[in-house]
Structures are given as structure tokens and as C-alpha cells.
Design a binder for these strands. Structure first.
Lengths: 215, 215
DNA sequence: CAGTAAACTGACCACCAGTCATATTTCATA
DNA sequence: TATGAAATATGACTGGTGGTCAGTTTACTG
């Protein structure tokens, strides 16, 4: 009996279509200015139908954020491949994150929104949980890379993999966020985003790299 | 003719009273849940009056953020005093920022909100501009401290004061932001906020401190 | 005691997230 | 093929909110 399966498949497709439409609308107008009526029109559905697939506007945006995290995870996996040492991999991840921000600024924004607006997992919506679990995957990937670097001697052995991953993630996110309004800070100086980020990655390199590599 | 002056004084006082009321309401319920009617009631004024003093709800929140930045600037100034070297001052600022977050989490939140929701200065509200100029003051203070450290040999001489200040500010903010939902990441590990932040400051110390101090 | 300017009011408007009674479509069963 | 039940979809409606504005009150002046 393949009918139930087809129904399930169609339900998934509809869900995907709604997220596609929502991306279009949310990314074009921004979350605050976009309305659920806009999304409904873009999806060629009535507003009520949207609420059969998503708990709320917020939940729908979380679904987009989940996509965003998935994309990011893919980029990280790719960046890590072909890098010889743990430290090299960590650097590659650092730049992959920046590329991500530049290539998918709207996804970046959505992921950020999720990070800001998530509280206790107990009362989280389904898509919020999805984001959380995917976020854990990314975090795990980073922590593993740090461990690898410790093992191969390219990263300071006294570092704590999980803590280091968390620190790098937070710091990099902070740097990227400040880029948007840095013009207000650096009055006369002409500083490009690239320079600022490279500056940051270099600094983190100083902090993480194993100096006593002559063991 | 002191009447105009008194009028001006009273206008300022009313403005202050409104911000006081808004802080109470916004901090208690959070920006999204708090309404302008709530603020009006707390201020014992009609809603319309609020709009004689502030352009919008957002603008009113910016006024609170401006207070927050002022408080922060005071803490930084105090932290810097009595520290012998530039690097010591930088460290003191790092911990002062964390203290600020712990002591005035609501101000921290308001400042963050401003940083996220500010775009081009051209179409900024008056209180938004206020935040920007006060932000520049804090940034300037930090940049000066870095310069001082370079001059007294405690900070790497090749560092760029403004860029370094920006990097540290962004990174520290990112770390603090990630604290709020770190539990989702560090599943089993028991990591306190204090530990995480100390970990971060230590790392930044590695990155900034002048290793060749035996000149 | 008018006249006027500033401060203040609150009913009102436009807009929007979310709901729900109703309608349509799909499919199993006889 | 007819029937009805389950799944899916609809859109008018509601409650609540940011912001407005015509009118009122208050404070001062000549």
C-alpha cells in the first residue's frame, strides 16, 4: 500500500514549497516587514494552510535557519577535507565561516536569529529543536578538529576541545556581526571586511597554535 | 528670563521619567512583550505623550541603550585606572565587560539590540545617533589602551590599535552571547560562565601579549 | 481677563499573527 | 459507481499593538 507513502511525500513537498516561498519573501523584505499573507501569496496557498505546516511565523523562520545550518555544516565538512593537520583544518573552518557569511548572508541572519531567540529546549518548537540538533553537529565537527590538532601536535595540548570550539564559534560570530556596523567605529580608517576577518583569524591562530611544535 | 530654562529642565525631567518607566517595563516583560500602553501607564502619562518625546518604541529603547553604553563607558574608565601597563588595562577591560553583562544584563541586551538594529546613520533616529557616538567613545578608549600597551612594550608592536579594539570587542560580545545558550552545545560537560570567559580572555592574551618582552 | 503657545489626552486607525467554522478533495468500501 | 469519512485547504474574522491627531488643559503674557 503506497498511498500513505505518497501522502507523506506530498506533505513533505508542500512543506518544502512553503519554506521556499518563505525564504523568498523573508529574504527580500526582512523578517519584520514580511507578513504571513505575503508568504501565503508567494506559496499560492491560503494563510490558514501555512499554520497546518508550521506552528508560527517564528517556527517557519526556524525552518529556514535549519536549512542554513545544514548548508554551513556542508561547507565545514568540505573545508576540512584535504587539509593535512588539525590546525590547518581549524583555519579552513574559520575562513569557510566567513565565506558562508558572504555567500549566504540571509541564511547567516536566520541562524543568528535562531541563536538569539532560543531559550529552554522544553518549550521549543519542532523546527527550533531541529536547529539545535544541527547546531550540535557543527559544534561536534569543530571539537573533533581541535582534538585532531591536539593529537597531531599542531594545537596547544592544554586546550579543551569543546570549550575551544565554543570560543572560536562565538568569537567569529561576534566579529562578523560587528562588520556590518564597523563603519560607525572606524571613522577615517579604510578597513575592508576581508582585512578585519583575516586579522581576527591570525589572532586566533596565535592563541591556538602549538608553539612548542619541536617535540 | 529663567522660564525657558525651567521649561527645558522640566522637559528633560519628563524625558528621564519616561525612560525610567520604559526601563521598568521593558526589562520586566522584554521588548517584544512590553507595549507602549504599558509604558504609558507606568509613566502615568497618555500614550500620545510618549510620542512627543520619542519617535517610536524602537527610539525609546535606543535611549535606554544609550544609558547602557554610558554605564559601560564608566566601568571601563574605572577598570583602566590603577593598572600599570597597557596589557593589564586591556585585561581589566575584558573582565569589566563580563562584569557589566553579569551586573546589568538588561542594559547589555539593550546595547546588543542597538548594535543589531542600526544601519545607515543617514536615517537614524536621534537616540540611535546618541548610541553611535557613545559607542565610538568606548571604542576610542579601547584603542587608546592598545596603543599604550604597544608603547610600553606589553602588547605586540605590529598590532593595529583600532582593528584590535574592534576585534576584541566583537569577539568578547560573541562569547557572552553564546553563553546564554551554551547548555545546548555542551551536553554533558559542566562549564560555568566564569570558566568560559576566563578561557576566552586567556586565549586573547596569548594573541595580543608581546612575547618578545625582553627588548 | 483675553490670547496664545506648549504640553497633554485618548479615541481612533491600519495592520498583522493566528484561529476556526466551513468547503473541497481524496480515497476506502460496498 | 455511490457514499461517507478523513485529510487538506480556505479566508473571513478576532484580538492586540504601534502610531496618529483633533481637541483639551495648563502655563504664561500683554
Amino acid at each position: 500500500m503506497g498511498i500513505a507513502e505518497r501522502r507523506e511525500r506530498e506533505r513533505r513537498r508542500r512543506r518544502t514549497e512553503i519554506i521556499d516561498a518563505a525564504e523568498e519573501v523573508f529574504f527580500a523584505k526582512g523578517i519584520d516587514d514580511a507578513t504571513m499573507d505575503d508568504v501565503a501569496e508567494a506559496a499560492e496557498l491560503s494563510k490558514g494552510t501555512l499554520y497546518l505546516y508550521f506552528e508560527s511565523k517564528e517556527d517557519l523562520y526556524f525552518a529556514i535557519a535549519a536549512r542554513g545550518i545544514e548548508v554551513l555544516h556542508g561547507l565545514f565538512s568540505e573545508a576540512v577535507r584535504e587539509q593535512p593537520t588539525g590546525m590547518d583544518k581549524l583555519n579552513a573552518i574559520g575562513y569557510a565561516y566567513y565565506d558562508y557569511y558572504k555567500t549566504y548572508p540571509d541564511y547567516f541572519q536566520a541562524v543568528l536569529h535562531h541563536e538569539h531567540n532560543t531559550t529552554v529546549p522544553a518549550e521549543a518548537t519542532s523546527n527550533e529543536r531541529l536547529c539545535l540538533s544541527q547546531g550540535r553537529a557543527v559544534h561536534g565537527l569543530m571539537a573533533n578538529v581541535v582534538q585532531e590538532g591536539i593529537d597531531d601536535g599542531t594545537i596547544r595540548p592544554e586546550l579543551h576541545p569543546q570549550l575551544t570550539a565554543l570560543t572560536l564559534w562565538g568569537a567569529a560570530t561576534g566579529i562578523i556581526q560587528i562588520m556590518a556596523h564597523k563603519s560607525a567605529m572606524l571613522a577615517s580608517e579604510e578597513v575592508s571586511d576581508d582585512l578585519l576577518y583575516t586579522y581576527f583569524v591570525t589572532a586566533m591562530g596565535f592563541a591556538m597554535a602549538n608553539v612548542a611544535e619541536h617535540t
